[in-house]
């Protein structure tokens, strides 16, 4: 089904939350309880990464206004920079990224039903000028927005030279602008209110434990995305590997995303270990193994999943990521008051 999504409706309901969140932000002066782990993660990781995302997206939007040719290196460089910045925060799926479905509008992946190319083809056919305005594109299907949609426009032959030429140029510029608007909103929310709500932990989060658990959950989200989606989807099964399901293979970014994800999850895990040197050492080792393996793959699109001689290296990588998950669940979780889920691991 590809009916028009009702964003206006969602926005109306989300707006209440924004107002509510703002009201909370104004009502509480952060009590400045020193939450060392939380401050460290916010100040050294989350806030700089969100700033980098907003700034590199703004750069991309600027360049996309003036350069249309998809192969132009300034445009591609800007795209890669901004997409990198997104992948580095793609595990931080709570709060500002979830308002108005911002994260989904930046990253509609996996796209198991091929909605992204369908939506883009429809846009090009209709050549609707309304889509070229920020409001118009913000209300269009998320499958046609964000980094993964832009990848089609820049790297897929069906789209890189699609006609009408002028409309395609204007649409890609509008898509880049939409990314910039979205990432700026995420950064602004983090900076203006959300980070403070995590530090003071007296409104949205009841106490510091809840804040740490949210961060721990995002660590798990990132590792799960890595093992099950970024690796698991292209791996498929031995008899039926699915190389075309690799993330961002058109732009040759699949392997790179694995490295980026591990490199941004590692400092989060280390910080959550809260100075436990023994645990930190084990985490370092458990991260280094897959990071080194991912760096050495020499398989940017993960095409090796379909080649028995190379496939085992990707399977080994997936195993190392799963080992890492097991270590984090058994040794890091309990210290943060997080036990393995009674219901979430069971299922019936």
């Amino acid at each position: 089904m590809t009916g028009p999504p009702s964003y206006v409706f969602w926005k109306a309901s989300d707006l209440k939350h924004i107002i509510f969140a703002l009201a909370i932000g104004a009502a509480f002066t952060p009590s400045l309880v020193r939450a060392d782990i939380v401050d460290e993660i916010l100040d050294d990781q989350v806030l700089p990464a969100m700033q980098a995302l907003a700034e590199s997206s703004e750069d991309l939007a600027q360049i996309a206004q003036t350069i249309c040719r998809p192969g132009a290196s300034p445009l591609r460089d800007a795209y890669h920079q901004a997409f990198d910045a997104w992948v580095r925060v793609s595990h931080l799926r709570f709060g500002p990224t979830e308002t108005n479905n911002r994260a989904f509008a930046l990253a509609f992946w996996p796209d198991s039903r091929g909605k992204t190319p369908k939506t883009l083809a429809k846009h090009l056919r209709s050549a609707d000028p309304a889509l070229l305005t920020p409001e118009g594109i913000a209300q269009s299907s998320i499958a046609g927005r964000g980094f993964y949609a832009l990848e089609f426009m820049y790297f897929d032959q069906n789209f890189t030279s699609a006609k009408p030429h002028e409309y395609r140029c204007a649409l890609t510029a509008a898509m880049a602008q939409d990314i910039a608007v979205n990432t700026a909103a995420i950064h602004r929310d983090w900076q203006d209110s959300y980070a403070d709500q995590m530090r003071s932990a007296s409104g949205r989060y009841q106490d510091e434990t809840e804040v740490k658990q949210e961060l721990y959950k995002s660590l798990n989200t990132g590792l799960q995305l890595l093992a099950d989606m970024r690796l698991g989807r292209p791996l498929g099964s031995f008899d039926k590997p699915r190389p075309k399901r690799a993330e961002a293979w058109r732009s040759g970014r699949s392997q790179h995303h694995i490295v980026l994800a591990l490199q941004s999850l590692q400092p989060l895990a280390i910080a959550l270990a809260d100075g436990d040197q023994d645990l930190i050492a084990r985490l370092e080792t458990a991260f280094q193994k897959p990071i080194l393996r991912a760096l050495r793959l020499d398989d940017p699109r993960l095409a090796g999943v379909a080649d028995p001689a190379n496939r085992f290296r990707l399977e080994a990588l997936q195993q190392e990521v799963n080992d890492l998950r097991a270590l984090i669940e058994s040794d890091l979780g309990p210290s943060l008051g997080v036990l393995a889920g009674f219901n979430s691991l069971d299922g019936d």
Binding site: F9, F94, G341, F342, N343, S344, D346
Partner: peptide, 25 residues
């Protein structure tokens, strides 16, 4: 429980009107 979320949808429109985050719910 896997997503740690309760989604509430409107029966008439089918739209999600609220997501409640609740660990291991």
């Amino acid at each position: 429980p896997r997503g740690g979320v309760v989604q509430v949808m409107e029966t008439r429109s089918g739209h999600i009107i609220k997501e409640h985050a609740l660990r291991d719910v």
